[in-house]
Design a protein around this nucleic acid. Sequence first.
RNA 1: UCAUUAGGCUGGGUAGUCGCUUUUACUUUUUUUGUAGAAGAGGAAAGUCCGGGCUCUACAGGGUGAAGCGCCAGGUAACUCCUGGGAGGUGAAAGCCUACGGAAAGUGCAACAGAGAAUAGACCGCCAGUUUUUACUAAUUGGUAAGGGUGAAACGGUGCGGUAAGAGCGCACCGCACAGUUGGUAACAACUAGUGGCAUGGUAAACCCCGCUUGGAGCAAGACUAAAUAGGAAUCCUAUGGUGUUACCCGCACUGGAUUCGGGUAAGUUGCUAGAGGUGCUUGGUGACAAGCAUCCCAGAUGAAUGACUACACAGGUAUUGCAAAAUACUAGACAGAACCCGGCUUAUAGGCCUAUUGACUCU
RNA 2: GCUCCCAUGGCACAGCUGGAUAGCGCGGCCCCCUCCUAAGGGGCAGGUCGGAGGUUCGAAUCCUCCUGGGAGCG
Length: 123
Amino acid sequence: MDHQFGRAFKINQSSQYSSVFNNADFRVSSPNLTFIVKENNLSHGRIGVVVAKKNIRRAVDRNLVKRIVKESFRKGEVSTLMVDIVVLVRSNLIRLSRKQQNEDLTSLWQALIKKVNYRNSRS
RNA sequence: UCAUUAGGCUGGGUAGUCGCUUUUACUUUUUUUGUAGAAGAGGAAAGUCCGGGCUCUACAGGGUGAAGCGCCAGGUAACUCCUGGGAGGUGAAAGCCUACGGAAAGUGCAACAGAGAAUAGACCGCCAGUUUUUACUAAUUGGUAAGGGUGAAACGGUGCGGUAAGAGCGCACCGCACAGUUGGUAACAACUAGUGGCAUGGUAAACCCCGCUUGGAGCAAGACUAAAUAGGAAUCCUAUGGUGUUACCCGCACUGGAUUCGGGUAAGUUGCUAGAGGUGCUUGGUGACAAGCAUCCCAGAUGAAUGACUACACAGGUAUUGCAAAAUACUAGACAGAACCCGGCUUAUAGGCCUAUUGACUCU
RNA sequence: GCUCCCAUGGCACAGCUGGAUAGCGCGGCCCCCUCCUAAGGGGCAGGUCGGAGGUUCGAAUCCUCCUGGGAGCG
């Protein structure tokens, strides 16, 4: 499997972010994370992580969370889906252990894939 | 060996897999893609508290105001920083701390207590005179700052003389001020058969005075490319006006301005990392630091690159067992992430290592 | 990147040209009033003035450094 993760896989403009926020197709969430999802016309998925300074105070932790989320996005199959994903992070995530974080993420990815497949089969 | 104090260094390691950013070479018609290689967070990157560089603004002119600093000498691009020295405070010592100019230019402040709180002050007390009384008792007039008491603070201290009682009233010693001499670049220190009888209480992180420093804005500074170009309509105000110009006035430069309607843009490149640079050696200096020589190129992201997983060894923490040594299990964790760049300050910081100092104990 | 403000009982505020018992309203507790409640009246508790240093005889107040919260400019 190809595990590339270049700049094309990131959402990197504020207009793109706001379009996802305003025209979201559906959401998937856990107590610590929320995924906001919108279908796109590209051949691959894109991801952007939003971490509020209020939720996670230290810059080290904020960057670490972003890296972890992107890493799991890259490893999984979600990057092949044609969706834009914005991830909102809550303050509890940093208190969990690394294992729990990964479990939380993988379960959310699976739920997301199910929803996308369901929508595709209906249309 | 234990404790104390001061200073410095380090800031987990090795291997593998998958990724990220920049870049070099090759590949490719250019972009892209691919292959191989190289580089990729800190001592505080932090707080934004000071000082500079750099950029723009009249290359900043004058005045008022405002802010900061304040023993002396040196270092530095500069500083409110650093080094060395002095003075004061503190500690048994090594050490540590100090916004450390002026209260003899002026103004103000000092609650409560106390007689009196700043051109001193008679509450008790002491002494003298007068009157009175059994009384050295009381009253009154005056003298008196030695004693008591108040307070954070009471207008030199101790002793002797002196006196009605007292008083720098006189003397000796101490302290203080001034002067001189010596040492020191200086702050300052030491000394004197010296002069003065003592004047000058505290507070300037109260106003203030003196001296020194500071024009303002900040890489979203600024420059360029492309696009849009921007000119249009209406109304109103006016060359004693507006902008540059972020305290105010003058001066200087440029110039008509404001509101509404409708419309458009907000993309990229550069600035951007060769620097008061790093490393090593030598020389000068007590030191901060400086000079010379050699050598190296060492992060440049932009919803923002340095991460994840696995294994091993070492040290650590927690729990259990154990007299202990140790064993087993779990855990991975110091503080923390560059955003134009430097010099400092301040704050956060697990564990480890090194050097010196002082004290105690033991041995030789 | 730059600049400024605030923090005082449970809550919202005053005191900030230094002077000691830190005050007011709402709330809490107790008592009175009422058949009972509300309203009304009386009383009580509750504060190391965000933290740490410094200046001063004396600091909520002045100065310095931190912590937390909020606002503005571009």
